[in-house]
């Protein structure tokens, strides 16, 4: 039997109404994803990939969906801005 793969605990910061995808309260929430997961895996697991367009941050830097996550990472999840008043 191989070694058990422990899930990763990462922090997510969903903005505005995107908080509805994640359990808990507060601006920053802790969630578990499988070891070796990418941001895309995280998005799929919580249903956020249903959003047509997203802007993603990883530890304060712009990130792609295929960025691999490490324990304690902070993932910002937003919708890109278009024009407005």
């Amino acid at each position: 039997m191989g070694a058990m793969t422990l899930p990763l605990r990462v922090r997510v910061r969903p903005y505005a109404d995107l908080t509805r995808y994640f359990p808990g309260t507060g601006a920053v929430r802790e969630v578990d994803v499988p070891a070796g997961a990418t941001i895309q895996v995280l998005l799929e697991r919580y249903g956020v990939d249903a959003e047509p367009r997203l802007t993603l941050g990883l530890n304060g830097e712009l990130a792609e969906r295929n960025a691999r996550l490490a324990s304690g990472d902070l993932v910002d999840i937003l919708v890109p801005m278009t024009g407005g008043a």
Binding site: T55, L56, G57, L62, P80, M81
Partner: peptide, 25 residues
């Protein structure tokens, strides 16, 4: 309601996603 076409405007007006511009540069 959440997820609806006007939910974000209804709740915050404009400017709820300024952070996206910061990240995108």
């Amino acid at each position: 309601a959440p997820g609806g076409a006007h939910h974000r405007l209804h709740t915050w007006g404009t400017g709820a996603m300024v952070k996206s511009k910061q990240l995108e540069g």
